[in-house]
Simulated assay, not measured.
Amino acid sequence: MNNHNQKISALIITYNEIGYIEACIDSVSFADEILVVDSYSTDGTYEYLLQHPKVKVVQHPFSNFTLQKTFALSQAKYNWILFLDADEIVPEGLKNEIKDTVQLDSPHAAYWFYRKFMFEKKALRFSGWQTDKNYRLFQKDKARFSDKKIVHETLEVDGTSGILNEKLIHYCYKNYEDYKGKMIKYGQLKAKEDFYREKSFNYLYYFLKPAWKFFNHYILRLGILDGKKGITICYLNALGVLERFRELKRLERKNALAYYLLMP
């Protein structure tokens, strides 16, 4: 790519991603810049990235996903941004589609990617993920991450959006404990988001929403057809919703106690 406006900055945020980040980096080697923002990994991820000849890595403390990605975006050199999670891989067909899209002076400000979810090394065909899509390619001067969300961050786009045909591969499930920890963390961050928006804990939602999440993904979204993989994923996704309400209740109690202690 000779034109500066057609160059791509590939951005990734990491924390303890050794064993996954290597394949991710290899899959975006076509980018003109690979920038990784690491939140002080302890498993060798940072050391690996430091030694990689194609990678620029900086460390930055993690507060939430939106702030971390916004920081990464501020460090990017080029206007076209390819933003990936460390456990995502760009296959050959998608790589070519990305390059063609950028080189052909795209009319769109951003592009959605559909994702192929992998349960360990096997594809997850249903379980609510079959229609999942995310913004992954966009022009930096026409997009920003919304400050209204701190998890499952939202990209606000000034302009039109397109959808690429090829799918991104997402190795979402490493093992049971890792995915469980991820869902609990997401639930806790979502609770903080609710708390900041002054949403109150509700016992009805506490019982109904996790049950609905499981029923919706396992039955209505056909997780049952994914076999044991489906029931595991749907259960852990519902657990994340349950943790959201548990954490919201803890935050309200903590806030009430602080208020009581500060009363004259």
Rank of each mutant, 00 (worst) to 15 (best):
S29E: 08
L124C: 12
D32Y: 02
Q103A: 15
N16Q: 12
I224P: 05
Y111D: 10
F145S: 01
S63T: 11
V157N: 13
N64G: 12
L225F: 13
R246L: 15
H4Q: 04
Y135P: 05
D43Q: 06
K174T: 10
Y186G: 05
E247G: 00
I231N: 09
F145L: 05
D43A: 13
A31R: 01
F207Q: 08
D87H: 05
F83E: 08
L204S: 01
N237D: 15
A110H: 09
Y46H: 15
N175E: 12
F215M: 11
S29C: 03
G227E: 05
Q68N: 13
Q75P: 11
R125Q: 10
K185V: 10
K122V: 12
L35W: 02
K199F: 15
L220R: 03
G128F: 01
R197H: 15
T66G: 14
K167E: 07
H60G: 03
L35M: 05
T45Q: 07
I224C: 13
E177Q: 11
F113C: 06
F207K: 08
W80Y: 15
Q130T: 02
M263V: 12
E17S: 09
E88Q: 11
T131R: 03
W80N: 15
A31Q: 01
G162K: 08
N237T: 13
W112Y: 15
P107T: 10
Y48C: 04
E252A: 07
G240Y: 07
Q59S: 09
P264C: 11
L35E: 03
L239S: 01
E97R: 10
Y171E: 02
E243K: 14
L204E: 01
Y171Q: 03
A143E: 02
I81L: 08
I169M: 05
E92R: 14
F83I: 01
F117M: 08
Q6R: 06
T131L: 01
H60R: 03
K121P: 00
E156Q: 15
I231C: 12
V102G: 02
E166N: 12
G223F: 03
D141N: 14
L242F: 09
I13L: 03
S29V: 02
